[in-house]
Simulated assay, not measured.
Amino acid sequence: MTEAVFHHPRQVLLGAQAGAVALPVCDHYSGVEVRMKKSLALQAEMAAEFGACVFDVTLDCEDGAPVGGEAEHAALVTELALAAAPGMRVAVRVHPVDHPAFDADVAAIVGRAGQRLCHLMVPKVDSLSDVVRAAEALDAAGASQLPLQVLIESPLAVRNAFDIASHPRVQSLSFGLMDFVSAHAGAIPADGMGSAGQFSHPLVVRAKLEIASAAHAFGKVPSHCVVTEFSDANAMSAAARRAADEFGYTRMWSIHPSQIRPILEAFAPGERQIDEAVSIMDAAIRADWAPISFQGVLHDRASYRLYWQVLERAHATGRKLPEVAQAWFL
């Protein structure tokens, strides 16, 4: 019998999408100087603990900069990004494209620290033209390869989510829950912003599903919104699990350090899932990717793709993989 030839699962199963973006499952936001510094320090500490950078740190200009102090805050953010530990993923949220400070944000921050950033987050994107405007600003700042992530925060943006996701510079769509609710002129009650209400109000649920669907349609990453009750660990964990298991999100925002580990836990596959995925992938490789029977169930490339993605998520969340699988992520 001829020995099976090894081809890397990512190339075999994802094909042209093998180079598609794979992001950490947690995106942590902070905009106050002391908290930004603590966030960057925590990121480096947890990277040492997990053996990988398991969450992004996004330094916030939109909510972090005091009115009238936008230029000074942009300068601070630039210095913090440049000083981040090697190998860490650092991003910046700038002001919206129609804000007077947008162009200055991009010129100051991207102009100096663009090579150090993993992406630029643009809030309040309503249409494809807003994405084009942001991409042109990056190009003008000399960062033509820097990806964009965008924040969907209005009913109009939800309507245009598929067009927005189609732009090649867009890497991820995030849902801005609080602005989305407040954009409805009181038609959605305040509890629609809460950890429970955001999963039950029909307009909010529809928006979440539209955003997730648009992102997946174009191979982008859907990023779930905040949980404002940051002192309620149970609410945080429950929301993260629902976002991952029921709404199709593969990434989530954190606004407090206590939320990072619950997000990692909720988005990580369990030990049993990992073991099953490794066994199926190992059998598939031995069969040179032909269909197999595993525990009485037929598997082929469609299911292999699913189980490979389970392992990629395990790796991204710092889960320890069995020895046979570790070589797949070197």
Rank of each mutant, 00 (worst) to 15 (best):
H8A: 14
P9N: 09
R10Q: 15
V12F: 02
G15I: 09
Q17T: 04
Q17H: 07
A20Y: 00
A22W: 06
P24V: 03
D27T: 09
Y29L: 14
Y29F: 15
V32C: 05
E33P: 02
M36Y: 01
K38N: 13
S39L: 04
A41F: 00
A52K: 12
D56P: 00
C61F: 01
E62T: 06
E62V: 09
E62W: 00
V67N: 09
G68T: 08
A83R: 14
A84G: 07
P86L: 13
V90W: 02
V92C: 12
D98H: 14
H99S: 12
F102I: 07
A107G: 00
V110L: 08
A113R: 05
G114P: 02
M121L: 15
P123T: 08
K124L: 11
A134N: 09
A137E: 04
L138Y: 04
A141D: 00
A143V: 02
Q145V: 04
Q145F: 00
L156N: 08
A165K: 06
H167T: 11
P168A: 12
V170L: 12
F180L: 11
A185K: 14
A190Y: 05
Q198M: 15
H201M: 07
L203T: 10
S213L: 14
H216D: 05
A217M: 13
H224G: 07
V226G: 01
A243L: 05
E246C: 06
F247Q: 04
L264T: 06
A268F: 08
P269H: 04
P269Y: 03
D275L: 13
D275N: 12
V278S: 04
R286G: 05
A287S: 15
W289M: 07
A290D: 14
H299Y: 15
R301Y: 00
Y304S: 07
Y307H: 14
V310P: 04
R313V: 04
K320I: 13
Q326L: 08
W328K: 10
F329I: 11
F329V: 12
